[in-house]
Simulated assay, not measured.
Amino acid sequence: MTIWNFANPAVIDENNRMAQNFAAVSALGYPEDLPVLAFLSQQLINANPEWHPAHKRQLEPLDRSRLVVLPGGHYLHWTHSQEMGESLRKFLR
């Protein structure tokens, strides 16, 4: 699937607009009353140590949030669907 999507026109356009898009949303956050369950990859945290604290700060203002760190790479839903499903069930209770 990754190869199929690699370098298609939409992906190239998204990549070219990345800095512009980040700047456009940098001051945005979630509504305080929106429950948010977020998953992070330990591999990405290891590559960018600011990744975890930045996500924690993003969730701090929320009434109900949870941040789950799982071992693995970017596509956690491919390798940790069971753990993610269980976390979702617990979060929804």
Rank of each mutant, 00 (worst) to 15 (best):
M1W: 12
T2G: 13
T2P: 09
T2F: 12
I3K: 11
I3F: 08
F6G: 04
A7D: 12
N8Y: 07
A10T: 11
A10I: 14
V11G: 06
V11E: 13
V11F: 07
I12L: 09
D13V: 01
E14T: 11
E14K: 11
N15Q: 12
A19C: 10
A19E: 15
N21D: 11
F22E: 10
A23T: 07
A24V: 06
A24Q: 14
V25T: 12
S26M: 11
S26Q: 13
S26N: 13
A27K: 15
A27V: 09
G29Q: 04
G29L: 00
G29R: 00
G29F: 00
G29T: 11
Y30M: 05
E32I: 10
E32S: 08
E32D: 13
D33E: 10
L34D: 05
P35D: 04
P35F: 00
V36S: 00
L37I: 03
L37F: 07
F39H: 08
F39R: 04
Q42H: 02
Q43G: 05
L44I: 01
I45W: 03
N46S: 11
N46I: 02
A47K: 06
A47F: 02
N48C: 06
P49W: 00
W51V: 07
W51P: 01
A54I: 07
K56I: 06
R57P: 00
R57I: 05
Q58A: 14
L59Q: 00
L59M: 03
L59T: 05
L62I: 03
D63E: 14
R64A: 04
R64L: 08
R64S: 07
R64M: 10
S65F: 13
S65H: 14
S65E: 06
R66V: 04
L67H: 02
V68K: 04
V69E: 12
P71N: 09
G72F: 04
G72K: 02
G73Q: 03
Y75S: 11
Y75N: 15
L76H: 09
L76G: 13
L76M: 09
H77Q: 13
H77W: 15
T79Y: 08
T79M: 05
H80W: 03
E83G: 03
M84I: 07
G85N: 11
G85S: 09
G85T: 01
G85E: 08
S87A: 13
L88G: 06
K90L: 14
K90Y: 10
F91L: 02
L92D: 02
